Computed example of a mutant assay.
Amino acid sequence: MIVKKRIVIITLITVTLLLVPLIAMQFTEEVKWTLMDFVVAGVLLFGTGFLCEIAIRKTKNVKYRIAICLAILIVLLLIWAELAVGIFGTPFSGS
């Protein structure tokens, strides 16, 4: 029961975060996200939350939990930055 509740919370947080650019698109021309942008962002955000949930559930040591979740968040930020502006210059870069 608690696991389902946590998954619902992760989903609600993901949807809430995705509402920010959706609402911004209504008021300015500077935010131009496509459906694919929302899908990729949703997968990244939900995946990060889900992986942190798995790490919290499977790891007993609190220090390891924090370290694993921090590593997952750093990977999220690096992927997000690469997709947005291309800090590594891969073919997936946004610039």
Results as ranks from 00 to 15, higher is better:
residue 58 K to R: 09
residue 61 N to Y: 11
residue 74 I to V: 15
residue 35 L to V: 15
residue 20 V to Y: 15
residue 68 I to N: 08
residue 35 L to A: 14
residue 57 R to Q: 00
residue 36 M to Q: 11
residue 74 I to Q: 01
residue 40 V to S: 10
residue 29 E to G: 13
residue 30 E to N: 15
residue 21 P to C: 03
residue 65 R to G: 05
residue 76 L to Q: 02
residue 14 T to I: 02
residue 4 K to G: 14
residue 79 I to E: 04
residue 61 N to T: 09
residue 33 W to G: 04
residue 76 L to C: 10
residue 21 P to M: 00
residue 91 P to G: 12
residue 7 I to W: 01
residue 83 L to M: 04
residue 49 G to P: 00
residue 70 L to A: 15
residue 3 V to N: 01
residue 13 I to R: 07
residue 27 F to A: 09
residue 42 G to S: 09
residue 75 V to F: 08
residue 32 K to V: 14
residue 51 L to R: 00
residue 58 K to E: 13
residue 88 F to N: 04
residue 53 E to W: 12
residue 42 G to L: 05
residue 54 I to T: 01
residue 52 C to G: 06
residue 55 A to S: 08
residue 95 S to H: 12
residue 36 M to F: 13
residue 56 I to T: 08
residue 19 L to M: 15
residue 94 G to S: 02
residue 16 T to R: 10
residue 25 M to N: 04
residue 7 I to V: 14
residue 22 L to Y: 14
residue 2 I to R: 14
residue 12 L to D: 02
residue 30 E to V: 11
residue 93 S to L: 10
residue 70 L to P: 06
residue 92 F to N: 02
residue 61 N to W: 08
residue 20 V to C: 08
residue 27 F to V: 13
residue 16 T to L: 15
residue 76 L to R: 07
residue 60 K to Y: 12
residue 92 F to Y: 11
residue 27 F to S: 13
residue 28 T to V: 07
residue 62 V to S: 09
residue 24 A to H: 06
residue 57 R to Y: 01
residue 35 L to T: 15
residue 66 I to S: 12
residue 77 L to T: 13
residue 17 L to H: 11
residue 49 G to M: 02
residue 37 D to L: 03
residue 86 G to R: 01
residue 18 L to Q: 00
residue 9 I to P: 06
residue 81 A to Y: 04
residue 26 Q to Y: 15
residue 80 W to F: 10
residue 5 K to V: 00
residue 37 D to N: 12
residue 70 L to M: 14
residue 61 N to V: 11
residue 80 W to E: 05
residue 95 S to F: 11
residue 85 V to H: 13
residue 49 G to E: 02
residue 81 A to I: 01
residue 2 I to D: 07
residue 30 E to F: 14
residue 38 F to H: 04
residue 11 T to S: 14
residue 35 L to G: 15
residue 3 V to H: 02
residue 76 L to V: 08
residue 21 P to L: 01
residue 2 I to V: 14
residue 57 R to K: 08
residue 86 G to N: 02
residue 50 F to C: 05
residue 41 A to I: 07
residue 68 I to M: 03
residue 69 C to A: 13
residue 20 V to S: 09
residue 77 L to N: 12
residue 5 K to F: 03
residue 14 T to V: 00
residue 65 R to A: 05
residue 27 F to P: 09
residue 49 G to Y: 03
residue 90 T to D: 08
residue 26 Q to F: 15
residue 2 I to L: 12
residue 73 L to F: 07
residue 80 W to M: 04
residue 3 V to L: 07
residue 34 T to Y: 12
residue 76 L to M: 12
residue 65 R to F: 02
residue 31 V to R: 02
residue 66 I to G: 12
residue 86 G to V: 02
residue 88 F to S: 09
residue 52 C to Q: 14
residue 91 P to I: 03
residue 84 A to V: 06
residue 65 R to P: 03
residue 22 L to K: 15
residue 29 E to Y: 03
residue 43 V to P: 03
residue 47 G to Y: 00
residue 12 L to A: 10
residue 51 L to G: 04
residue 84 A to M: 08
residue 28 T to Q: 06
residue 45 L to N: 02
residue 77 L to A: 14
residue 7 I to E: 00
residue 29 E to S: 14
residue 57 R to H: 03
